[in-house]
Computed example of a mutant assay.
Amino acid sequence: MMKLEGISTFVAVAESGSISEAARRLRLSKSVVSERLAELERQIGAVLLHRTTRRLTLTEDGSAFLERASRITRDVEEAAADMAERRGMLVGPLRISAPVTLGRMHLGPALYPFLLAHPDIELSLDLDDRRIDVAAAGYDAVVRHGLIADSRLMAWRLATSQRVLVASPVYLDLHGTPASIEELDRHKGVFYANRGVSDWSFATAKGVVMVRARTGLNVNNGDMMRDAAIAGLGIAMLPTFVAGAAIKAGQLKIIDVGVNAEPEHIYIAHPEGRRPSAKLRALADHVRQAFGNPAYWDC
């Protein structure tokens, strides 16, 4: 008879792509993970994974087994959570991905009181600026800032997000302050690499207009964008939750070009078709209240 621990271990390895990462996620040694995989393959009578020194890949049998194994693991976790919720408890694992800067500056401080109030929740928070496939990577939800690009996600809004053009006083003294979006192409920009050419988008009377200045720096992290703008590398479009403190300190100045950046949101999203757990709903409600409306960083 197959053991549930072997099935859940296989799912963790398949989702993470390595035994080491699966062991970290499961809080087990690599040897235990390997033993569970070997035992599961013996019980099934099939090789589920190709193992090389560099990577793990699913065999054809492994790919076929993964879909049902994932469903079994998820169903068991949800059943255990349902029983706990019936007793008025919020317990069990919860795995969430969030951007690095938002997580460090605002999400973490919002979550700490929640976790203290619900000590039986086992939260794994992965900070990563990459766009990920939430379901395939094994996350219960993802926190993101911007527009929702994946139609397979169900999103709940946590806060509105205001983005502003900013630059250092030194940069503006040297290169002048643009007064319209047409003047922006004569300046250098610090761009968020994960957005590509759509990083600077403005809501105008004629619709959304995208502008591209000359590239001073492309980077996929908000902290570095802010710091590069402070250093005088160019103009950056930053959310106020990133740039607010530097603006108040006089390190950055807001540039008014007559139109506003396209409105965006901070949201938490879970895979479509998967019923969100009570603990995920409670976490989202807590973070929404902690951020405030309007968000505390805009007050």
Rank of each mutant, 00 (worst) to 15 (best):
residue 2 M to F: 00
residue 5 E to S: 15
residue 20 S to F: 13
residue 21 E to N: 03
residue 25 R to C: 09
residue 28 L to C: 11
residue 29 S to P: 06
residue 30 K to V: 09
residue 32 V to F: 02
residue 36 R to L: 13
residue 40 L to T: 01
residue 41 E to S: 04
residue 41 E to M: 02
residue 42 R to N: 10
residue 46 A to F: 08
residue 49 L to I: 15
residue 52 T to S: 15
residue 53 T to K: 13
residue 57 T to F: 05
residue 61 D to T: 12
residue 62 G to C: 06
residue 64 A to W: 13
residue 66 L to Y: 09
residue 67 E to L: 09
residue 67 E to H: 10
residue 67 E to N: 06
residue 73 T to N: 08
residue 74 R to I: 01
residue 77 E to V: 11
residue 79 A to L: 12
residue 80 A to C: 12
residue 81 A to Y: 00
residue 83 M to D: 10
residue 86 R to C: 11
residue 87 R to W: 03
residue 92 G to M: 00
residue 95 R to Y: 12
residue 96 I to S: 01
residue 97 S to P: 05
residue 98 A to Q: 01
residue 99 P to R: 05
residue 100 V to I: 15
residue 102 L to V: 04
residue 104 R to Y: 14
residue 109 P to S: 08
residue 111 L to V: 13
residue 113 P to K: 11
residue 114 F to P: 03
residue 120 D to E: 15
residue 127 L to I: 08
residue 127 L to T: 11
residue 128 D to A: 09
residue 131 R to E: 14
residue 131 R to C: 09
residue 135 A to T: 05
residue 140 D to A: 03
residue 143 V to D: 04
residue 145 H to V: 10
residue 146 G to D: 07
residue 148 I to N: 11
residue 151 S to F: 09
residue 154 M to D: 15
residue 155 A to W: 08
residue 164 V to H: 07
residue 168 S to N: 10
residue 169 P to G: 07
residue 176 G to W: 10
residue 177 T to K: 09
residue 182 E to C: 06
residue 198 S to L: 11
residue 201 S to Q: 14
residue 204 T to F: 02
residue 206 K to L: 09
residue 208 V to A: 12
residue 216 G to A: 07
residue 217 L to D: 07
residue 221 N to E: 12
residue 223 D to S: 11
residue 227 D to E: 15
residue 229 A to F: 10
residue 231 A to H: 12
residue 232 G to Q: 02
residue 233 L to W: 09
residue 236 A to W: 08
residue 241 F to K: 02
residue 241 F to A: 00
residue 246 A to I: 08
residue 247 I to T: 03
residue 253 K to S: 14
residue 257 V to F: 04
residue 269 A to C: 13
residue 269 A to T: 13
residue 273 G to E: 01
residue 274 R to T: 05
residue 274 R to W: 01
residue 282 A to K: 08
residue 283 L to I: 07
residue 284 A to P: 00
residue 286 H to P: 03
residue 287 V to L: 01
residue 292 G to H: 00
residue 293 N to E: 15
residue 299 C to I: 12
